[in-house]
Structure formats: C-alpha cells, structure tokens
Write a protein that binds this DNA or RNA. Structure first.
Lengths: 110, 110
DNA sequence: AAATTATGTCGTATGTTTGCGACATAAAAT
DNA sequence: ATTTTATGTCGCAAACATACGACATAATTT
C-alpha cells in the first residue's frame, strides 16, 4: 500500500532525513550527545525516559542515516554525533527550503 | 504506548515539523507549489501519483503545521506556500542544527 | 571458568500512517 | 431546479512505527 517508490530519489532521501528527526526521543538523543562531554554510550538510556531496548532502536535509526556513529570500545560503545554528516544534512535541508522560498508566487501571500 | 509527552515542548514541536516533511508526497507537494505559477488547487492531484483523497489528506497535514494555506475561491481552493512560516521553520531547524554543531566533542571525530 | 557488565536482537502488543473508494457538501453552469 | 465541478470527510485495510521484556553475545573481572 506504500507508494514511496513513485517519487524521485531526492524526494525520498529528504523524507527519510526528516523521518529520522520525527520522534522527540531521537531529537532528545541528538541534543544529549551534543552537550555530553564524553561520548557516553548506553548511559543514554538513563538520560531518556524510555527502556534501554527502545533507546537502542532509536540509536540504530540515527546510525542508519548517519547522524551518529557508534564505535565499540571494549564492552562499551561510544556514540558520537557525526559533525560532518550533520553539516551536510543541514545543508540539504537548507537547499530544499531555499528552493521553496526562491520564487515567491505573486498570486500568494497577497 | 506512545510516550511523546515525556519530552519537552520544544522537542515535540521540532519532531512534528520534521514529521510533516517525512513523506515524499508532502515534499513533492511543497516543491510543486513552489514552482507552479498559479497557486493551483486540486490540480495537484493530477501532478502527484496518488488519489485525490490521499493528496487532500497530505494537504491537510501540511496546513495543520502552517507550511501552506488554502483559501477558498468559489468552487476551487487556492493552495499557497506560507513563505513567512517556511522562513520561520527553516530558522528553527537551523537553530537546532547549530546547537548540535556548536560544541564539538573532543572525544569524537578523532 | 564462572560471574558481571554493556550491548544488541527477537518476538510481539499496541498505536499511527498511508491510501483509497464511497458518500457529503457547496458553488457555478445549464 | 438540476447537473456539473471542485473539494472535503468517513470508514476501512494494509503497512509501519513504537515500546518493551526476554534472550543472545561478547568483553572484563573475579
């Protein structure tokens, strides 16, 4: 029943990036990683009011789209924001919004 | 089973904005409105490979978050991007990404 | 080698989204 | 007044997302 394949690659890609940000837990995880000084791993579960399992799944989704990386360090995993990738995503969103705002339609916003 | 209420207003708000962009049909609709010269209404259904019903629902979602406005004009409805609101949304996303990128963690990206 | 600690994956229940046909409404044309 | 045209809403089915307990794995510690 899903018809996403009927749209362009670019459209699907943008939609996927947006989807990654479409849950407050994932926003919270990104914000936490940004302010934590030490790439803390599963302690994230303690900072987020959800079970470890659920946090782990959200981390997996963020990893899938490249927002974060997780490097194994013995028994622990250090999760980090991927700053280069974030910069790139930010810029893709920017390009999209700029394209929306580029040609204001004279018949609109009268 | 949903626990979105456990997160901050700001986090929920951002997640909702992102959710509005999380389907390629909605991206396509925004892109179409940006390049169409005449605020065309339900002709959008003809430009998007989905039924009129489904397009109407996507339009409703975009309206709910303020991305677009729909003004009745006789039998037709003129859909328009809300440029001021788009600018605002763009800036909210920007602020969020900047907050993520502001304090690069020295333990990451080594 | 057994216990501990940190993580990840599986199964599953419940909730949400997507997509569309069928029906409802309401302005405009005949 | 009836028909046509443009839209919107309802109700349902299929797909997807969210959440978590229970089990699996694998590096450290004892």
């Amino acid at each position: 029943m899903l018809k996403t394949e009927l749209f362009t690659e670019k459209q699907q890609q943008l939609a996927q990036l947006a989807r990654a940000l479409s849950h407050p837990a994932r926003i919270a995880i990104l914000a936490y990683l940004a302010q934590s000084s030490s790439c803390i791993s599963g302690d994230i579960s303690n900072e987020i009011p959800l079970s470890r399992t659920t946090v782990s799944q959200h981390l997996t989704e963020l990893k899938k789209l490249g927002f974060i990386s997780g490097t194994v360090e013995g028994v622990k995993v250090n999760y980090c924001l991927d700053n280069a990738r974030l910069q790139q995503i930010k810029s893709e969103l920017d390009v999209f919004f700029n394209s929306l705002l580029a040609n204001p339609n004279p018949q609109c916003n009268l």
